[in-house]
Design a protein around this nucleic acid. Structure first.
Lengths: 131, 131
DNA sequence: CTTTCGATGACGATGATTGTCAAAGTCATC
DNA sequence: GATGACTTTGACAATCATCGTCATCGAAAG
């Protein structure tokens, strides 16, 4: 198999750049809107493709709103972490919880589960949105 | 406002009963399939309605697969708890983590977030499915 | 039994996501 | 700078879960 070249295109750069500038979780549709409003015309399909590629590459984190819509965010830390997300504005804080990691592995092992992963997200209303 | 009558119908009973017999998370579509295969004909729309009503009433738990599909399960414990879910067969174990609850509230408070909730699910492969 | 009104379900509508494929762009090479 | 091979793009159609509609059915009360 070929090592996947990954060409640099205007669209790829635009999506990656936008994600790095926004400090909250956004849906593909929202990102598409933002790009258009900034004058950078990128097809919706392309936004989906890049956002998913970045997610698979581990460069952005994905989670789901209550309604199931996928939202994306570029995170500073490359390692494993969780999020404290404002349910109003989408702004989020990256948090780590070593104790939680250990606990989940423990629980899984106790019940004979292997190949363990977990999801942990905290939702709330941030100070600004509480106004 | 009226106190919501909630009539007892064959369909309502069938959905509730099925959920109580199945020990794993199932999607509305899967539940609909199961009901049909058991001979109990219930409309898909009706399955959706009951499953959501039960979820709002706190009688079943909801979570989302990776692909965003909602899956439901009737849980024994009424209180707040989390799940250890087999990603192959959907079977799940209810677990509690008092330490985690405290930690999430703590973290949220530190960052000025209020009205806090959280989701925590552990995915793995159960012993049976590891074969 | 009859009336009343919520419950049902076939069907269409919605909305996010994915598949398709011709046209345009990128990169290595000449 | 031009060329060719191969990738990426994006308009559009297709999927798929889920929700809205509304005529019809059935449970419960009188």
């Amino acid at each position: 198999m070929s090592p996947a070249p990954a060409r640099s295109t205007r669209q790829r750069a635009a999506v990656a750049d936008l994600l790095s500038r926004v400090d909250g979780f956004r849906s593909a549709q929202e990102l598409h809107e933002l790009l258009r409003s900034e004058g950078a015309s990128v097809g919706l399909t392309t936004v989906y493709r890049h956002v998913q590629a970045l997610a698979e590459a581990g460069q952005v984190d994905v989670l789901r709103h209550e309604d199931g819509e996928a939202v994306y965010r570029a995170c500073g830390t490359g390692g494993h972490h969780h999020h404290l997300v404002c349910r109003d504005c989408g702004r989020s804080v990256e948090v780590e919880g070593p104790a939680v990691e250990a606990w989940t592995d423990d629980v899984a092992a106790q019940h004979g589960f292997t190949d363990v992963q977990h999801t942990l997200e905290i939702f709330g209303t941030c100070r600004d949105c509480a106004a």
